[in-house]
Design a protein around this nucleic acid. Structure first.
Lengths: 267, 267
DNA sequence: AATGGACGTTGCAAAATATGCAACGACTTC
DNA sequence: GAAGTCGTTGCATATTTTGCAACGTCCATT
């Protein structure tokens, strides 16, 4: 919609790959050096981009700070955290909280396992959307046409022999998840890691987030992990209850809202 | 430098505070609604901004992903991590890794304490720059004029009675740190938390990152923590050695570099 | 020492682009 | 049913961005 901003923003993913100098940026943007320079300068002024001592550019500190701040302002996260911590205290395994947003599912909170063998993951990192328990829960709740459209758009990498192979299988799995109200990932991403997850529901019963417990085979068998299911579901329900129960907070910025709008930063 | 991009980027910190609707954005940007709309649309197309079901905007998934990816591309981090994990295995306390960038010091890695009482911090979050051990280490190595300039620009919040009170005291402390090659924070940020840190040096001996061990009083006394100093310094030196020792990797993008440029994403 | 080549930077004129306006449509509330 | 928000669109104006060409600088080579 806005060419200048569009070009400027196109620089970011490019720099995310690694530092680049002016000419590299210009050529990949297909603009004149001077144009790229001016865009980079603007990004620099905002701290989005940092100029290294060797003159090359890379993504800057403010980007982290922004992502950080935004994440901390998510309501679900705030409400859920103590519940997640409590569940972790009880079972000791890794707990994840995730939300869906335009073809991506990402972790917005994590409580680390107390066992030495841990699962690799990072807050802010997009999850393996075709296999993760939390992803299934979030996608299962999309309106039918969109669910189908998303499933078609996705790639289906074969992480392991038990990964979801294609869109058809995925949609079938989503139907099952939708039916039963919980989901698993049994070695679909990492051969030795299993997860059990449950949905967190908002105002009209829509799934606004999902949580899961993950543990490697070497710590507990899949069956043992599944025995945690009731507990996981209870936790998810407790979070849901608190989430919908919360009073509607007026925006601090002071604008009145004629429509009943919730602070609820859904995902 | 570029008005349009400048305006678009100004939206980000605004949305980081929490979701906002079109009019709020427009008024805070001091532009016409239609202008704000077009900027937001462009940001949306890039996934930087997300439009909630209630039509309000907030920061989007791609921003998190970008911050994530950028972080993982930092060389120091990659090299340092195993060393940090090892130190944590030995002493059990929280380990931080931080870099400096234009008036900010931020954590780029963290290994959690194995003790139940933990310190609050988050990767990506700017640290209390006037008191943190890692901040002192990083600032102490700046060239004299800039060090002075930065010290003057900073605020000196009195987190505790032992916080650095002003620029003069800070510069004196930096001189000491520079001299001795290590730094501490004894209750300067949180009354009950102490830290010991050491610098990680790059090619020409410049400090490119800093690491520290933190622990609350209730777990170990300040003296006990200080007894870890030799070990901390050895770890920092091991990281430095590996960091400078690494061969220079050619850029995958393929541009030839006439100047000897290192991949080294310093901070 | 001098030359050649890369790369970043600047002023300028041309033109493409973004801007504000006003009007419209959807929706709520009184 | 009227009044009021709020988001959206087409359009003409002019501000803003763009590409160009030339310059300066640094480094490597001869």
């Amino acid at each position: 919609m806005s060419q200048t901003v569009d070009r400027a923003l196109s620089i970011l993913p490019l720099l995310a790959e690694g530092p680049a100098n002016l000419e590299q940026v210009a050529s990949r943007l297909q603009v004149h050096k001077s144009t790229a320079l001016r865009l980079l300068r603007t990004l620099h002024e905002h701290g989005i981009v940092y100029r290294q001592p060797d003159q090359r550019y890379r993504l800057g500190a403010r980007l982290f700070a922004l992502a950080q701040e935004a994440m901390e302002n998510l309501d679900v996260r705030e409400i859920a955290h103590p519940h997640l911590a409590e569940l972790n205290a009880a079972c000791g395994h890794t707990i994840h909280l995730a939300v869906y947003e335009e073809d991506e599912v990402l972790y917005i909170d994590k409580v680390e396992s107390r066992y030495p063998v841990r699962m690799y993951s990072r807050i802010g990192k997009p999850v393996a959307i075709t296999v993760a328990a939390v992803a299934k829960l979030l996608l299962a709740d999309l309106p039918e046409p969109e669910r189908r459209a998303v499933a078609d758009r996705l790639d289906y990498p074969r992480y392991t022999s038990r990964s979801t192979p294609d869109a058809a299988a995925f949609l079938a799995e989503l139907a099952r998840v939708r039916e039963q109200g919980w989901a698993t990932d049994l070695g679909g991403h990492e051969e030795s890691i299993n997860c059990v997850g449950a949905p967190i529901r908002g105002a009209e019963g829509r799934v606004v987030a999902a949580m899961s417990v993950s543990a490697p085979n070497v710590v507990v068998s899949a069956d043992e992990l599944l025995s945690l299911l009731p507990r996981v579901r209870r936790t998810a329900e407790a979070i849901s209850a608190e989430y919908v129960g919360q009073p509607i907070l007026p925006q601090p910025t002071g604008g009145r809202h004629p429509h009943p709008r919730h602070k609820r930063a859904a995902p």
